[in-house]
């Protein structure tokens, strides 16, 4: 078993919180894990990514070779597309629909949606909308991660462990809200693919 995952977003959008939850879940599952992050200048509102590799065997490269990613999880519609050369032909692109516009030449949404739909295995999720529906606007990243649950090698227990590790210090309410966000994303994902 091996899963290669690319997380995509803009510096400051908090993709590392998604990476951390997956990381803790992998520890709970006793899997090997390598997770590469971007620090430094790009964190200032530039395109950022984090790669995650999970396996039941030792993992070598920290980076994912081209065409070997099973999954791109993007918290922003344009950013996921940037890493398509790393996605397997049969891989899944899971992306939030809400754009993060901090550049003057941000593309038209129709063109972006068309590009996303050109990948047969895609899920577009209105994570921000779903997060505000459950009255937890700050958990939209967890809604996006929830949409990826069907493609990840974890049980619910593993997520509970991961969320507790991440948010336990902030109290039971925050943990519950984030778990609800995960569930919301997962349900959307299951219904979309029916």
């Amino acid at each position: 078993m091996q899963r290669n995952i690319i997380l995509a977003g803009v510096g400051g959008q908090g993709i590392l919180s998604i990476a951390a939850v997956i990381g803790f879940a992998a520890i709970h599952r006793n899997l090997y894990l390598k997770q590469a992050e971007v620090h430094g200048m790009s964190q200032r509102g530039g395109a950022v990514q984090s790669t995650l590799r999970l396996s039941d065997k030792e993992i070598l490269s920290d980076l994912i070779p081209k065409g070997k990613a099973d999954l791109i999880i993007s918290v922003e519609p344009m950013e996921g597309l940037r890493y398509l050369p790393w996605l397997k032909k049969e891989g899944w692109l899971i992306t939030n629909s809400k754009p993060y516009v901090n550049i003057p030449d941000y593309p038209e949404m129709d063109a972006l949606n068309e590009a996303i739909r050109s990948v047969p295995n895609h899920i577009i999720i209105d994570a921000s909308g779903l997060a505000s529906k459950i009255k937890s606007t700050r958990s939209s990243n967890m809604v996006v991660l929830g949409a990826a649950i069907p493609f990840l090698p974890f049980d619910w227990d593993d997520y509970v462990y991961g969320i507790n590790q991440m948010f336990g210090k902030k109290g039971v309410d925050v943990v519950e809200k984030n778990l609800e966000a995960l569930k919301t994303g997962e349900e959307f994902s299951e219904n979309t693919r029916k």
Binding site: G11, S42, R44, G46, M78, E108, A111, L112, A115
Partner: peptide, 9 residues
């Protein structure tokens, strides 16, 4: 359609 997104202040 993907455009560059350089870092910014």
């Amino acid at each position: 359609v993907v455009t560059g997104r350089p870092p910014a202040l």
